[in-house]
Design a protein around this nucleic acid. Structure first.
Length: 675
RNA sequence: GCCGGGAUAGCUCAGCUGGUUAGAGCGUCGGAAUCAUAAUCCGUAGGUCGGGGGUUCAAGUCCCUCUCCCGGUACCA
């Protein structure tokens, strides 16, 4: 007999130099979580793997810029992201990290396996080397003059000014971004993976996948058409998995090669934790196991071409069974991005809303076929008009009815008839179609079918009119309410992949344990008459417009601070010109009596003396300031502060309890305009 | 520049290999009901399917072209 199918579900490894935002969640994390929860309800054998991707240039660069160790960087993001996932109810079996010992070991073994099979190629190449830092500089660590347009701050990989793609060796006057040191060309040897050799095998394999999403196939077509090239899989870098071959000091395995192996090492780690250290092989190597990678579209190449080619080369592991990649979730028509200041971080949004509300809102606009839009008003209307009105209301009206009319006890089912059976049957049919949608990774459809089932429960309630029955046929009324309570249980199961926290709450309200909590019980009677119900609770409180407005203003403010630019709050040049900024010299300064924060400054602006009062006494003493050149707003309406005239405002930067006034580099005469 | 993807009701999105009056949810409007978080249920109205041209008995769906958006990739002749 065939073994039971195993599901090995992975979610893209988030790169540990950023906090995850809801675009990530929509792209690669919520759908697998829903999928896995659904599989569990069907009693399938499934494990759910993810973890931080913690190596590579970007992290090393961040550590240099912040003057901390890479370890500090990855710890910060790894633990924060891990918690953010937990807060959202995204429940991995393991969320580990590629800096772990077992990952280094696994990645090295993988690498050696390919070396021993003579698959990897060694090639020498010239790269820029910094004598001062004693190391090769990665593309992003280099700036220089663009050979195309002459822009002096072009990056090693591209020129931001003219958009040219560059190689660092083409830059004129290259220099290290970190030290400014001028690098030299030096020969270095790297291992290459012969991706080109696998093209035919890969395309045969991918084009045999008739059930994959078309976007995934299309991306691959593009790559095949262009032709796959050999790719260097080692780098001259300190931070990463060391190349496990003698004579390769200072070289690490390149992240894109090493990171996906993390899926394997994390699976190993999971089963070591479970004291069953060989069991990972059942998921990775056995034929009855299905490997499913959930990713965003930016990751398609690695998961559908590069990693499968590596797995083919290695030979011991299964190839992916499916890669249901999502597109991107945009907000307000713009792409999520930190630099544009519009990313909604998970760690922030969970402070404002219940995780299930966030999950529902994201899941109902999953970017399954194309990029989709998210906005706050949408979240509000999803909560108020769907979750509260349809789902929350059905549970509430049922339980409140039972409470007031049946003494908070589940009524008897003596008078059930075929109308009651019909709604239960309908739930069974719904659960079948929801299943089919989940099986095909159609999460939006699954969710809408789920909500339709809940709607039909409301209809059943309306049509049965228990409030009328109560007056003339109490027994029949009891049967209806009993059925409604059964529906509550069925609903709890049906929604729980998407709304796990709500499902738990419903069970509590029903005073029911989890013994019947599985997919096959949807539309079945599992409750006992006479059982007392638990405490009622409003599942989805209304969200007010004012809440949303506050969040939007908070968010845009904090983003503006973070990124130094306003989001969605652009002004015209003329608006800016209204502000008259000038250079002023501080000629005298004293503390304002009886004030903690205020300093009184005497300034010279273009030969004219001015007096301003400024709230910087907690950061500067008068002695610090006298003689300094600062920037002031010269045409601000005068005001009185603690009775003292203030004829302007000085500019200062403030952040987390720090404050620094804006001064001028070098010497310039007071009164000079700033613009 | 080249390659790929997108543009469908007020909003968010479905529409497989072309086939009867273009769909769903939410919002709008009208009605029923009052157990329930004024929550439900029923019904209604809304679209020249980005513009233009073509193939076909028949096109949102195929072809050409243009506009706008998003990715990828290339600056070589």
């Amino acid at each position: 007999m065939k073994n039971k199918t195993k599901y090995l579900v992975t979610a893209a490894l988030p790169y540990a130099n950023n906090y995850i935002h809801i675009g990530h969640v929509a792209g690669a994390y919520l759908s697998p979580d829903i999928y896995v929860r659904y599989r569990r309800l069907k009693n399938d054998d499934v494990i759910f793997i993810s973890g931080s991707d913690e190596h590579g240039t970007a992290i090393e660069m961040a550590s240099i810029i912040e003057k901390v160790t890479p370890q500090e960087i990855i710890d910060r993001y790894h633990f924060s992201n891990k918690k953010a996932f937990e807060d959202l109810g995204i429940q991995f079996d393991i969320f580990s990290r590629t800096s772990s010992e077992i990952h280094h070991k696994t990645a090295q073994e993988f690498f050696l396996n390919l070396i021993n099979k003579d698959i990897l190629i060694k090639k020498s190449d010239k790269q820029l080397y910094s004598e001062k830092e004693k190391r090769f500089l990665a593309d992003r660590f280099i700036t220089g003059t663009c050979p195309v347009c002459g822009y002096e701050e072009a990056r090693g990989d591209e020129c931001e000014n003219c958009g040219s793609n560059l190689s660092p060796l083409e830059l004129i006057n290259p220099r290290s971004k970190i030290t400014g040191d001028i690098p030299v060309e030096k020969e270095t040897t790297h291992y290459y993976f012969p991706l080109g050799k696998y093209q035919e095998k890969l395309s045969d394999w991918i084009f045999s996948k008739t059930d994959w999403k078309p976007n995934v196939i299309n991306y691959c077509k593009g790559w095949f058409k262009a032709g796959l090239r050999d790719r260097a899989i080692t780098r001259d870098l300190d931070w990463g998995v060391k190349v496990p071959v003698e004579g390769n000091d200072g070289k690490v395995i390149y992240v894109w090669f090493e990171a996906p192996i993390g899926y394997i090492s994390m699976t190993k780690e999971l089963f070591i934790e479970r004291n069953d250290s060989d069991k990972w092989k059942e998921y990775w190597c056995s034929e009855d196991s299905k490997l499913i990678h959930f990713i965003g579209k930016d990751n398609i190449v690695f998961h559908s071409i590069v990693f499968p080619a590596m797995l083919m080369a290695h030979g011991d592991f299964n190839l992916p069974y499916n890669i249901p990649a999502n597109e991107f979730l945009n907000i307000g028509g713009e792409k999520f991005s930190k630099s544009r200041g519009n990313g909604i971080l998970v760690k922030d949004i969970v402070k404002y809303f219940e995780p299930d509300v966030i999950r529902y809102s994201i899941a109902s606009s999953f970017p399954e076929n194309k990029d989709s839009e998210f906005n706050w008003k949408d979240l509000l209307s999803r909560n108020n008009n769907e979750l509260a009105a349809i789902l929350g209301n059905f549970i509430n009206r049922t339980v409140v009815f039972a409470k007031s009319k049946f003494n908070n006890v589940i009524p008897g089912e003596e008078s059930i008839n075929n109308l009651d059976q019909e709604i239960l049957d309908q739930f069974r049919r719904s659960s079948d179609s929801v299943s089919a949608f989940y099986d095909n990774f159609r999460f939006r459809d699954a969710l809408s079918e789920t909500m339709n089932a809940v709607r039909s429960a409301n209809k059943y309630f309306n049509d049965s009119e228990p409030w009328k029955l109560f007056k003339n046929d109490k027994e029949r009324c009891g049967a209806v309410i009993h059925t409604c309570l059964e529906l509550c249980h069925s609903i709890a199961v049906l929604i729980s992949p998407v709304l796990p926290f709500t499902a738990e709450k419903i069970l509590k309200i029903l005073n029911k344990d989890k013994s019947d909590f599985n997919w096959s019980n949807i539309g079945r009677r599992v409750l006992k008459s006479g059982t007392e119900l638990g405490e009622t609770e409003i599942l989805f409180p209304q969200i007010e417009d004012s809440q949303i407005e506050k969040i939007i203003s908070d968010e845009s403010e904090s983003n503006a601070v973070k990124n130094g630019k306003g989001s969605g709050n652009l002004i015209e040049l003329d608006d800016f010109r209204k502000v008259n900024l000038k250079i002023a010299r501080i000629i005298n300064c004293e503390k304002v009596a009886k004030s903690k924060k205020l300093l009184k400054l005497k300034l010279i602006v273009g030969g004219i003396e001015k007096q301003i009062v400024s709230g910087i006494a907690e950061y500067y003493t008068p002695e610090d300031l006298i003689g300094k050149l600062i920037v002031v707003v010269d045409n601000l309406k005068p005001a009185k502060l603690m009775g003292i005239d203030s004829e302007g405002m000085l500019l200062a930067a403030k952040n987390n309890g720090e404050l620094k006034i804006i001064t001028v580099e070098g010497e310039i005469s007071d009164g000079a305009e700033v613009n």
